[in-house]
Design a binder for these strands. Structure first.
Lengths: 215, 215, 215, 215
DNA sequence: TCATAAGCGAGACGGTACGTCTTGTCTTCTC
DNA sequence: GAGAAGACAAGACGTACCGTCTCGCTTATGA
């Protein structure tokens, strides 16, 4: 389990530079992110409003806007922490590890706050480079660790060969990440079919066979 | 290329049932869908408004709401037709066919109207069963034909074995569809990296190897 | 009691000039005016809509607009007939006659359709000369007969002198009409106090004393 | 001339009770009432819209709705202040005073904003008790002062006797108010004839004769 | 008798206003 | 100077009516 940085570390700089005046409340930060997740659960993305989050958090709207530029940024931060809970189980084989993480990821995407928020912020990010960058650094890149760890374990076990060229290795990492994450997301949210053990087994078999064959 | 049904066939109620009264204008239908695509290109999802579409189409807002319940439904119909342009090229081998359709799909996702709309309506559909059904019937299920055609060709060529059990076959179709579509969408929209020929080749190789190995 | 002309006689000319084609339905006319009065009772002026009247009358909106230019005109015709029911009772003295007609008029203004419609169309008529003319000919001028009859009776009884000059006589008629109608309307609708027998007696006494003194 | 209370004192809630938060703008209040009167002049009642008033006042629609429940309430407040400009001239005799105030009132009713608004809000008030109360307190009751002052002066001059019983006195006040206001309004707005000096003289003579005779 | 012409019900149409909601900023007072 | 409260400008929302239109049908005459 990767250590989770305090969520405020992603928010707009707290009062570091100018040290005069009342410092920002750390409690407010936590309350806002929690309230944002609750609001996502209760309302979904399209009825999610900044005013509602402020009310739930017992905070003034100004306090939200002082920390986040808008609802997109706030929701990215609110949801990102959930993704950090993912971890690669060590089940003794590549196939078992992949299947385990697929099911973990599917469980995460079943949570209403994740389900409704993830696609929404990605949609917004198609027109907002800064938001895309935020999603990438807060969510996407952080989870690539799972692929890296998985490959290392498989290599240690002798299931996959070592790759000498770091560029090829990075390309490989990205490819696997897109395939796994994309397939699970598509199954869960677009096809709207359950990512159950059967599907996970079929999918894992397909991918791992491909990996083994192309190695 | 699959024949495209007239867009009004997807709209709420064409003047089929009730035969009295003034019939709905087919021109209005076409103008609205065109205007909706233009608005998506110009404004993206979050600035897309029904009023703006009405103005662009030279139509009253009520005319939109008479046909579609809201912007979600309208956008699904406006974008669905673009997906019908996809077709599986016959390039002589499974690998080449898959690579071709991956690049086609990537080109479609590069179009600003598709890029911005697809994730947005999927995000909304997580809270709206009717919308989910509409997406499925207007977009998802219609494109599974690509997988079916591809498999048939590969089987005819001897690249893949015939599957006797129709249930297994359907599971297989869904799996491949989620893997291919999901991976391309994730690469293009979440990772926001180009789906170029190199990536398409790597991805196709991985999948086809897996398919061959698990056959 | 003055004979009431059929209401359609006030509507835009029925098919007199061009005599071919299907003639307008007289039943529709009656049904519409009745429905209009019912709608005024149920909804008041501001919620009164042409579409609602059409529905109540079991008639298409076009049928209304073929006969009346808008809701103002329709309502004037719908309520005008109610005013024609007023008549001057012959109670043996000017004071008694005036008191009787005041109470009749007050009863008419208590009816919800009259109450809500009269002020509304007068308000609209301040910006619409044609409407003002329609109100005058359909309502105001028709009721001046009450003043004329009352004066004639009073003159016959010797309570009021004969006026030789017709211009002075007409001025007098108008003055009395405005005073009586205006006072009752103001009491009933603006002050919103009951026009009961006590008020009618006080008012009649004041006016008749004035008439007697200025004669 | 009676002192006019600041118009905001009639608005729903000035920032009296809750003392936190940004206080309501007094400038906005004044600008809105002015804009409302201008809109009445330019457009009349039926084309008068809240949105138009907001635009004219350089204010958002929400700012209007925060203060007034709808156009009825706003217009009552916008027009009420004009009625406060009426005052009873002291011309030495009851007849002259009444004639003076009749002409003043007629001049007020000639103003397009008053003409179009007064009857309209009265019409609406027949279905809205709160509005009726608002009209009464903002306009009707405030102007009864004119009758009271006129009677006091006439009593001081010996033109009218003192009335001992306060109930009779109040009844008398209401009667005279309804007769004078009603007659002028009816002449001006219903009959749509000019309230000129000749009519004012005839009317005043009739009323004062009646008052003298019944005293 | 049958064409012509208007009336009629139904309901879509372009417009416009409604009253509410949300956004992101600003203003006031309190801590 | 942060924070809570809430007013503010801006503008989209989805609904309701308006008055017009376009259908297909009905009902009268008059050729």
């Amino acid at each position: 389990m990767v250590a989770v940085m305090p969520s405020s570390s992603r928010a707009a700089r707290p009062s570091c530079t100018g040290r005069t005046g009342r410092p920002r409340s750390a409690e407010a930060d936590a309350a806002i992110l929690l309230a944002a997740r609750e609001a996502l659960v209760d309302l979904g993305w399209s009825k999610f409003t900044m005013g509602d989050v402020a009310t739930r958090a017992g905070v003034a709207k100004t306090t939200l806007y002082r920390r986040w530029a808008g609802k997109n940024e706030l929701v990215v931060d609110a949801v990102a922490v959930l993704f950090d809970e993912l971890e690669l189980p060590d089940l003794g084989s590549l196939v078992a590890d992949v299947e385990g993480v697929v099911l973990q990821f599917a469980a995460l995407l079943e949570r209403p706050e994740t389900k409704t928020a993830l696609m929404a912020v990605v949609a917004e990010s198609t027109r907002d480079d800064a938001l895309r960058g935020r999603i990438r650094s807060a969510i996407v890149d952080r989870q690539k660790r799972l692929v890296l760890v998985g490959r290392e374990r498989a290599q240690a076990r002798g299931e996959l060969p070592y790759e000498a060229d770091p560029a090829v290795s990075a390309r490989h990492t990205d490819l696997i990440f897109d395939v796994v994450a994309g397939a699970v997301v598509h199954r869960a949210l677009v096809s709207a079919e359950p990512v159950d053990e059967e599907w996970a087994r079929d999918f894992t078999l397909l991918i791992c066979s491909g990996l083994a064959a192309t190695a």
